[in-house]
Design a protein around this nucleic acid. Structure first.
Length: 730
DNA sequence: AAGGCCCTTCTTTTT
DNA sequence: GAAGGGCCTT
């Protein structure tokens, strides 16, 4: 059919491959998504496979959405019935269908990382372990690891006391999840595998259903996902996986690109197809990327090539410090946009860690240029959002103690630790979740069998809260989602609590209203799908698609995207590669892949940026160039910045670091450098411009008096006030 | 019970 | 340089 005509021979071979196992190893920019979408379309259009016989899984919601849209464009009919989504969402779907066989109810909630951590802490405390010795984060990571490898608490290694403690926490943690009628992310996969492995009839039913299984980003699968796929394609044996070992960057989350090799071994007859032509980038970009990735061993060597022209040389800019680095990036972007060489939307700035976005953002704000930031301050991670969600979760699932604790405390309603402890004890004694005790108190107040457990005030307060909850639960079952939402806001007094006259309060309230709009969109589907969506949809999906502003994002978030021009910042040892991977060759190889992913996002222009000095925690430290830079052939690079022979750097930090006042340190130990003198013109974000009237050293601080043009006289501590010197005066 | 202050402790990446 | 935890005060 003609929809295959825009494919190259390898792509077409993959798309039209006969039944059986197909492994497509696709280099960056080689048309991986195109192959996947055309394959699905081909199955439906040419092979007459009904959509409900197809399962296609991705890792991100964004990828799933893109795939759905593109397939829809290729297929005339409806895709109704297709199982297309992330591993986690498809597993949730499966588990909600099969609740009868599982130790939790259909309305289970999905615990995010914060919830998980709370639960682990509880478990550690209950086992009388020392939080200092058994770090909740570390223990949780070990548990998550175990789950990714399908290791249950009973099978968790206990070769020493420490591991034994870990096993106990794991076991208790699982019991608590069950009591809370909750699953964590890993559980979604783990329980799906267990369900199919333990119930052959269910396994066969699904294996028959899914005539074709397709997988995106196969190199990022963990063992649980691998096993799940194996179970699901066990009858027809039609599994089509697409991946690239060189783009495996989720090892820390259990991903194991060796699954590619495992796949080849497991299915010796599998058809293996390499996609090596890169349609995205110039030859210079591709050569650069190749030079970097070829240093990694243990991979299927690919001969990535581009037939686009040679293109521009890449730029390596070395700045004095991280402020100058940000200034360079923003200035260069401003130039590219103003000369219309590149539209803002086709520019991206990438970095290793989210923390590195701060200076860049500040530089953008200072320049007055718009930008969009991916990830970082999660919408769903905001306090006010978590608060409201905790009410909703509680209404949906009163067994959720994490939400109960949160909801009962905000706004403050006189219920403190002591009352909560009593509540927990009463619940334990009666063998019901604390939520049930609350509901009972709410329904019958002093006639409740629990009333006597609490002393006067506590009982009344709990009963009040319980009455609210009873009402919400009723609304959750009977009313539409927006009605429940409004009732919760009204009953809890949350609006009055948030909106306190401050600007921050208004912003927070706006966010709550944003959540309400989202709830509106889910009124057809209802509360449980709404909550599931909140848990499984990340922030990448909430960013507006249309925007002409440059994008700031981590290298991880950049996977799967492409931009005309890419800046990769922080190319210094300890940052990229990150210091935490210094001693582990496997980790180091992954850092290299991460860099490779960043490089291959660029179509035309690539800027690599580093700084001689950058601040890690507090004070600035000297840094040395990333080792990865050594691997790039000098012939492809134009060097700029302090390494230029010409002498002075093109960019100098024209604003200085405002260091915070360290109150613990005796001021006299640290001589304060006087920066201001009378007559200088200065500028502050809030007060605008002004003139320094007086500057003096007092109590170990530089104190200055400034007369601002708009607001008049202010007495300031220099190190605290965010001032910018805009003129030296006389 | 709740809010404020100071101290410590980290920081990778996220479905 | 932020955020959470512990301790103090009201």
């Amino acid at each position: 059919m003609d929809f295959l005509s825009d494919l190259n021979p390898q792509q077409r071979e993959a798309v039209t491959a006969a039944d059986g196992q197909v492994l497509v190893l696709a280099g960056p920019g080689s048309g991986k998504t195109r192959v996947l979408t055309h394959r699905i379309a081909w199955l439906i259009r040419e092979q007459r496979i009904p959509p409900y016989h197809i399962l296609a899984v991705t890792f991100t919601n964004r990828a799933a959405r893109v795939m759905q849209e593109r397939v829809q464009n290729l297929v005339e009919g409806s895709l109704e019935g297709i199982w297309l989504g992330t591993f986690h969402s498809q597993c949730a779907k499966l588990l909600r269908r099969e609740e009868d066989l599982l130790p939790f109810k259909r309305n289970f909630v999905i615990f995010d990382e914060d919830d998980q951590l709370s639960l682990v802490k509880k478990a550690i405390h209950e086992l009388n372990l020392d939080e200092k010795l058994y770090r909740p984060g570390g223990v949780l990571a070990a548990i998550s690891n175990a789950k990714n490898q399908l290791i249950l608490p009973e099978e968790f290694p206990a070769r020493n006391y420490r591991e034994e403690a870990g096993r106990k926490v794991y076991k208790l943690y699982q019991e608590k999840l069950e009591q809370n009628n909750a699953l964590d992310f890993d559980d979604l996969l783990l329980w799906a595998v267990r369900l199919l492995a333990d119930h052959p009839d269910r396994r066969d039913a699904y294996a028959h259903k899914f005539e074709h299984v397709l997988v995106d980003e196969f190199q990022d699968t963990n063992l649980a996902q691998y096993e799940l796929l194996k179970l699901l394609c066990g009858y027809h044996g039609n599994i089509f996986v697409v991946g690239d070992e060189d783009q495996s960057i989720y090892r820390w989350r259990g991903a194991d690109y060796h699954n590619v090799l495992r796949f080849e071994k497991e299915y010796p007859d599998c058809r293996k197809i390499l996609l090596e032509q890169n349609y995205r980038s110039t030859r210079t970009v591709v050569e650069t990327a190749r030079a970097v990735i070829d240093r990694n061993t243990q991979r299927t060597h690919k001969n990535l090539f581009s037939e686009r022209g040679e293109g521009l040389k890449i730029t390596l800019y070395e700045a004095m410090d991280d402020h100058a680095e940000a200034a360079y990036v923003v200035d260069t972007i401003a130039q590219l946009i103003s000369t219309k060489e590149v539209p803002g939307s086709d520019l991206a700035v990438m970095y290793r860690t989210n923390a590195q976005s701060r200076l860049l953002e500040e530089a953008f704000i200072r320049s007055g240029m718009p930008y969009r930031l991916v990830g970082a301050q999660r919408f769903y991670g905001r306090r006010e959002i978590k608060d409201v969600i905790s009410y909703l979760r509680l209404a949906s699932n009163p067994a959720d103690e994490i939400s109960l604790t949160r909801a009962i405390g905000v706004p403050p309603r006189g219920i403190g630790d002591k009352t909560l402890t009593t509540l927990a004890l009463a619940a334990q004694k009666a063998g019901v979740p604390p939520g049930e005790v609350l509901l009972d108190l709410g329904r019958s107040a002093d006639a409740s069998r629990f009333w006597a457990e609490f002393k006067g005030r506590g009982a009344a307060l709990l009963a009040d809260f319980g009455a609210m909850l009873t009402n919400w639960q009723k609304l959750a079952a009977e009313a539409a989602l927006p009605a429940l939402f409004d009732a919760i806001i009204a009953d809890s007094g949350y609006q009055a609590y948030l909106v306190d006259g401050s600007e921050e309060g208004d912003i927070r309230w706006e966010n709550v209203m944003e959540l309400r709009r989202l709830a509106f969109e889910f009124q057809e589907l209802g509360l449980v799908p709404f909550l599931e969506n909140l848990a499984l949809v990340g922030d990448q999906d909430t960013i507006p698609e249309q925007s002409d502003a440059p994008t700031l994002l981590t290298l991880h978030a950049a996977k799967g995207l492409e931009f005309n021009t890419v800046f990769i910042t922080g190319l210094d040892e300890g940052f990229l590669p990150h210091s935490r991977s210094r001693d582990d060759p496997e980790e180091m190889a992954e850092e290299r892949r991460l860099f490779y992913v960043g490089l291959t996002r660029a179509k035309d222009r690539l800027y690599l940026v580093r700084a001689e000095q950058r601040s890690g925690y507090g004070a600035p430290e000297w840094s040395s160039p990333s080792r990865f830079l050594d691997d790039i052939p000098a012939s492809l690079v134009t060097r700029k910045g302090i390494s230029e022979k010409s002498g002075k750097p093109a960019h100098k930090t024209e604003y200085f670091t405002t260091w915070t006042l360290d109150r613990n340190r005796n001021a006299s130990q640290e001589p304060v450098e006087m920066k201001y003198k009378a007559g200088m013109r200065v500028k502050n974000e809030n007060w605008g411009e002004g003139m320094v009237v007086d500057a003096r050293l007092q109590d170990g601080e530089e104190r200055i008096d400034v007369f601002f043009d708009s607001v008049g006289f202010k007495r300031l501590i220099a190190s605290m006030a965010k001032l910018e010197i805009i003129g030296e005066g006389k």
